[in-house]
Computed example of a mutant assay.
Amino acid sequence: MLGLIRARKLATRDTTLYIVPDAGLGAWYTRAHMTAAARRFGAVVIHHHSCRYIEEYDSAIAAVTTVARDIATHVFLTDGMAEAFRRQYGDIAFRVVTNAGFVTAEAVRSSGPRLGGPIRIGHLSNLCADKGFFVAADTFDAVRAAGFDATLELAGPILEQAVQERIDALVAEHGEAVRYRGELAGQAKLDFYRNIELFVFPTAFKQEAAPLVIYEALAAGTAVIATDRGLIAEIVPEFGGAVCERDGPFAECVLTYLNSESWTEEARAGRAAAIKEWMRNQCAISTAQRESLISQLASRPGRG
């Protein structure tokens, strides 16, 4: 509320309000903010980070769109997100700014050689059912049962007691082939992605959009297999992994991918280099998009 009071004091027709709408009941607060903004600001930029109200019509978001339609520019994370929003809520002014630019530093780094040996699989997230931890664990069991020499690296905060119990069971079953590395940040997080070859992300999170963890994995040259939620199908390249049906058997999807790829050192290095090259291009596009958005925010409404 304090932020809104400050915004009211600073508001003039020569300024632009930047806001990220809530994806839950808080969207009604966003609607109230939009009503005030339409009277006080010359323009509004509404930056969307959730697909929840795009997949399912939301009356509060519809009200936000209607109130600010004449002065608002909507910012979406992919072209598909923009198209889906417009189908739900009508024609609006918009631009696309992807999240790829956040991983530019890693994407431009040389991938280097890839080691042979076990196929190194990883899962990093808030470790819970919604983000797919238990499906990832079951998938690793299936991979080993199918005869693949594979290891599993897990990272992220444990949000449910059952997660720790499942990790303990994985270690009891597979020994040193499973390792939980805790919460990671900075260099340790970069090393996590660089040391794995397949990032699995079987998310069931309803507000999923364009997860940064997928961009982080791809920037490291790591292939990604993820569930088709939110915008994931748009940000995983066909040659850089696979996107599995939302309600389909995730383990089968992973096994199909493992059987279709070569795991020689040369093949691993070539795959990583191709993924990195693709990500460099995505990062360049994203950076240009973000710079254009910043220019719009810095300009006076109606003049840029």
Results as ranks from 00 to 15, higher is better:
M1Y: 13
M1V: 12
L4N: 04
L10N: 13
L10D: 06
R13K: 14
D14F: 05
T15F: 04
T16E: 05
L17S: 01
L17R: 03
L17Y: 02
D22E: 14
D22R: 11
G26W: 12
A27T: 09
W28Y: 15
R31A: 15
H33P: 01
G42Y: 10
H47L: 02
H47Q: 03
H48K: 02
C51M: 15
C51P: 02
R52H: 14
R52F: 12
I54P: 11
E55F: 12
E55S: 14
E55Y: 08
Y57F: 15
I61L: 05
I61D: 03
A63H: 10
A63W: 08
A68W: 13
A72F: 09
T73I: 07
H74S: 04
V75M: 02
T78D: 03
D79K: 12
D79A: 13
G80Q: 05
A82P: 07
E83A: 10
A84G: 05
F85Y: 14
R86H: 08
G90I: 12
D91V: 12
F94T: 12
R95K: 08
R95G: 07
R95I: 04
T98L: 00
T104A: 10
E106P: 02
V108C: 03
G112Q: 13
P113S: 09
R114G: 05
G117D: 04
G117Q: 11
I121G: 07
L124S: 15
N126K: 11
A136K: 14
R144Y: 05
A145Y: 03
L152Y: 14
L152Q: 12
E153P: 06
G156V: 08
P157K: 00
I158P: 05
A162R: 13
I167S: 01
D168A: 09
A172Y: 07
A172T: 15
A172I: 12
E173L: 10
E173Y: 03
A177M: 03
A177G: 05
V178N: 07
V178R: 01
R181E: 10
E183P: 10
A185M: 11
A188M: 15
K189C: 15
L190I: 09
Y193W: 09
R194L: 09
R194I: 04
E197I: 08
F205R: 06
F205V: 04
F205Q: 06
E208P: 02
P211Q: 00
E216T: 10
L218F: 10
A220E: 06
G221C: 03
A223V: 09
A223S: 15
I225E: 13
A226I: 11
R229Y: 04
E234L: 06
V236A: 11
G240F: 01
C244S: 14
C244V: 15
D247M: 06
G248E: 08
P249Y: 00
L255D: 00
T256N: 01
L258T: 00
L258A: 00
T264E: 02
E265T: 12
E266R: 14
G270D: 14
A273P: 06
A273L: 11
A274V: 05
I275F: 02
K276N: 13
N281Q: 14
N281E: 14
Q282T: 00
Q282R: 00
S286G: 11
Q289T: 00
E291T: 01
Q296S: 06
Q296W: 04
Q296A: 12
A298C: 09
S299T: 14
R300L: 08
R300V: 14
P301M: 05
G302M: 11
G302F: 11
G302P: 08
